[in-house]
Structures are given as C-alpha cells and as structure tokens.
Nucleic acid binder design. Structure first.
Lengths: 189, 189
DNA sequence: ATGATGCCTGACCGATCGGTCAGCCCTGAC
DNA sequence: GTCAGGGCTGACCGATCGGTCAGGCATCAT
C-alpha cells in the first residue's frame, strides 16, 4: 500500500492512455486519492514521475540490448529471443507505448532519449546484415505490438461484438507474427 | 497561399509530432506567422482545427472501407489492395499517426471516434474468416506503418550513421512487409 | 514530555491554456 | 464617398497548469 508505488502505477497507466502532457498532476492525485501536493512530495516534478514510471523498463531493455550486441547477430537464436522479447513487451506494454508513440514529443526527457537510442540500436542490429527492410520489420513489430497491447483495449469497447483476447492467446499470436517478421524464411520455424 | 490551408497543414504536422494536447494554438500561430486570434478566426476552436486537419483523410479511409465491406473478403485481391493501402498510408501518414496513437486520448472528438470505428471494422474484416490473429496482423501492420512513417524521421537523427530511406525504397519495403502480414501463404506472391 | 521524521495538506504563485470581443486595415462594389 | 466584408490583431477573460511553502498530524525513540 505504498503511496509512492501507487502513484507510479497510476501515472504509468495515465501517461500511456491519455498522453504525458494531457495528464495533469491533479488528475493523478485524484486517481490516487491524494492531493496534488502529495504527488509532488513523493516525486519532485512531473518529469521525475515519468522517469520513475518508465525508467525500470528501459533499464531492463538496455540490458537486453547490451546482451544482444555483445553476442552478435550470427549467434542469435531468433526464436528464443522472440519469446523473451514478447514477454518483455507484454509486461511493459504501457512503458513501451509511451516511449514509442510519444517519443518524439518527449525527446527532451533524458530517459525517453535513452529509450529512443535503444530502439535505434535494436533496429540497426536487425538490419545490419541485410537491407533497411529488416530494420523496418523490427520497427513495425515493435510499434505494432505497442499498439495492439494498449490501444486494443479500447477496441473491444468500440467493436463490442469482438471476442476479448485471452492473455495466452495474445502471447501466442504475438510470438507467431513476430516470428514471421523477424525470422528469415531460410531458418526452420 | 491560403492562411486557412497553411494552418491546417501546420496543425497536422504539429499534432502528429508533439501531440494534440501538447500543441498550443499559440505555437501553431507562431509557426504560421500569425496571431492566435487569427487561428481562431479561421477555425472556431482547436478541436475544429483538428477535424479540418484529419477529416479528409478519414473520409477517404471510410470510402475505402465501405468498398471493401461491400465486395467481401473472398472477392478481395489482397495484393492490389495492399498497394493502394500503402499509398494511402504514405500520403496520410500524419493523420494516421494521430488517430492511431492518440486515438485513446481523443475519443471524445467525433472525427477520431469515427476513425477508431473504421479501424475496428477493418480489423474485423481481416479477421472474420480466420482467428483473431489475422485481426492482430492487420492492426500491427497499420500501427507499425504509422510508426515507421513518422517516428522514423527522428530516428535518422538519433542513429546518424543510418542511411536515409528513399521514398521509393520505403514504399517497396512497406508493400513487401504488409504482403507477408496480410496475404496468406497459400496465395502465390 | 519532547523532539525528530514521514506523510500529507490547503493556500498561493506566475505562466499558459483555449476562447471572446471590439476594432483596425484593406479592397472592391455601388 | 461610403459602405460591406474578409483578414487580422491586441487586450482581456476564467480556468488550469506545474510548482512552492508553511504547517498540521500522526508515530516513535529518547
């Protein structure tokens, strides 16, 4: 029941859903059942709250990228990587959506710049051996996942007849699609 | 040199890049070399400016969707559709990025609700004959394209060594990737 | 009892937000 | 000449923004 952790979770969800600049500290405070002053007691500024909300996920992504670049593209077991990567995306979908789709608006926030650079390094990594098309494949897989894992929640409200995706079903579908995008046809699936 | 059209173009670019709520009328006015009052002379409100900026693209998308649903999935020449669709995405990348990635934040704007419903109809259309996986394929193709066509501009600044994509190269790559995502393997490519 | 500390609050600040309004300037019709 | 209307403007409005500050209220060690 830590207020600090509550605020971090609430801010993460709201920054992802409504956007960073469209989310006021007042609103976060109301959702947490606190006053705006309390929010600023736990976090020195709105930007500090953003850093706390998405920082851990970006740290984890950084470790993942460093591991990849150390070992190189040839040594990569692409299918094993995709399973791990999809689990990362599922767990940090809100953070992903923030730095992917608000990345341009938040370039002056250090943690977002760091995230952008990581994505660029990943895209280069997947594209280095072949054409830029492979970089695009990775970018589309990443941004497509971010969209499906967050915006899609709203979809079921819009398209009310649609069956709600089960978590496992989402995971399996994501693994299958990303395999098509990132594993060359020459590698057996 | 219509001020009205200038404002529409500038607003479209800024709403896409920085986000709707992060873009002030004051900023749009400065970029257009006008006063804020002039912006509100041409468009009754900020929301009206958004409608004018993305409305035409959504009208065109609506026509495209209506045509698809009339003819049905069986009669669809998927490869021809993809080429047309990619050209639509290329031309309206900023509008796309707005209603795809700010769609949740702007649900109370009528034109955005309309766009969301169109996307949901398209996803259902592609998923009806098979599993929800095909809906996800379409959603990822759409959102992935929106990302690569807009955010990717910033990428070349981040990853300065990367070769800038040529327009034709972008188009060809997008067609190739979307074909992989949306054309079943049973159909010859 | 007293003081220190952690958590929280309302009052308040200057800046900026979207939007209103009265009026200026120019051009073209009469 | 004058009137109408389109394009544009600065002054101004209430509301909300992120952020500061002094202080209230528990809990706990001394």
């Amino acid at each position: 029941m830590s207020s600090s952790a509550d605020l971090r979770r609430i801010a993460l969800a709201e920054f992802s859903r409504a956007g960073y600049s469209a989310t006021s500290l007042q609103r976060i405070a109301e959702l947490a059942g606190l006053s705006k002053s309390s929010v600023l007691y736990h976090y020195a500024s709105k930007e500090a709250l953003l850093e706390a909300a998405i920082g851990p996920a970006i740290d984890r992504l950084e470790g993942l990228v460093d591991g990849l670049l150390e070992r190189g593209l040839e040594a990569l077991d692409r299918r094993a990587f995709i399973v791990d990567f999809v689990d990362f995306l599922l767990e940090h979908r809100n953070e992903l959506h923030i730095f992917i789709n608000q990345g341009r608006a938040l370039v002056d926030v250090p943690v977002v710049r760091r995230a952008n650079r990581l994505v660029a390094r990943l895209a280069e990594f997947f594209g280095e051996a072949a054409s830029v098309q492979d970089s695009m494949r990775f970018g589309m897989a990443l941004a497509g996942s971010a969209y499906m894992l967050t915006v899609a929640e709203t979809f079921d409200e819009v398209a009310a007849t649609r069956t709600v995706l089960q978590p496992d079903e989402t995971r399996d579908a994501l693994v299958a699609i990303m395999t098509e995008l990132l594993v060359p046809a020459s590698v057996p699936r």
